[in-house]
């Protein structure tokens, strides 16, 4: 019975889930949850918001699942569309009430593992990650989305295209431009390394 449910398509599972079949809802959730959570996390930059998005997406999917038409694309595209709208709403809301700075940083600091590697190396790495995250967040929305889907969520061009409802060529060109912009931003934010003055040996007293 479980095998039969597992082999069903997303659209069939959705129909069964809406009819109240929990055994159909669980595999559907398992299929969609991981990429959805990662996408929401990178788009919002907050784990709490990502969790909120995942919960709301599934509720909305059950409520508005009737609107899904398989002819227009796969279910994951429909789900990502719902997630995109929710994220937009969350960002609008959070632009009014911005979270206190430092919470995320504290969380990241608590994740530091003293024994695993050198502490300073971890701090440098975290700074680098933060720099990239800020740079990605400052990109225009359509560039940020392709970077998140292709580079961070590890989706193929075709999968990203179906989620963003555009052509594969569009994804390719957007990604190229997004990488160029990102590289430029990273170059701008990179701190200039202090150059060592070539003083020669004559100043050495030893």
């Amino acid at each position: 019975m479980t095998d039969r449910v597992e082999s069903r398509s997303d659209a069939e599972l959705l129909k069964l889930s809406m009819a109240g079949d929990e055994s159909a809802f669980l595999p559907l959730y398992e299929r969609l949850k991981a990429p959805l959570f990662r996408y929401a996390f990178y788009m919002t930059g907050s784990q709490a918001s990502a969790e909120e998005v995942v919960q709301d997406v599934f509720i909305s999917l059950l409520k508005n699942g009737n609107r899904y038409q398989p002819a227009q694309g796969d279910l994951s595209g429909f789900v990502f569309g719902i997630a995109r709208n929710l994220i937009r709403r969350i960002r609008k809301r959070e632009s009014v009430t911005e979270a206190l700075p430092g919470n995320e940083a504290l969380e990241r600091k608590s994740r530091l593992r003293p024994g695993a590697e050198d502490l300073s190396a971890q701090v440098i790495r975290d700074q680098g990650v933060e720099r990239v995250r800020t740079a990605i967040a400052s990109l225009p929305d359509h560039y940020r989305q392709v970077i998140i889907l292709c580079d961070l969520c590890e989706l193929t061009y075709a999968e990203s295209a179906s989620r963003l409802h555009c052509a594969v060529g569009t994804i390719r060109s957007r990604l190229n431009r997004a990488h160029a912009m990102l590289a430029q931003k990273l170059k701008q934010t990179k701190k200039p390394q202090p150059e060592l003055r070539a003083s020669g040996t004559e100043e050495c007293l030893i």
């Binding site: 996390f41 990178y42 784990q47 990650v129 990239v132 990605i136 961070l152 990102l182 990273l186």
Partner: peptide, 14 residues
């Protein structure tokens, strides 16, 4: 540098 940072970011996802 870009690829390294993106990989770090990818690995840093909770």
């Amino acid at each position: 540098e870009l690829a390294t940072c993106l990989l770090l970011l990818r690995e840093g996802a909770p």
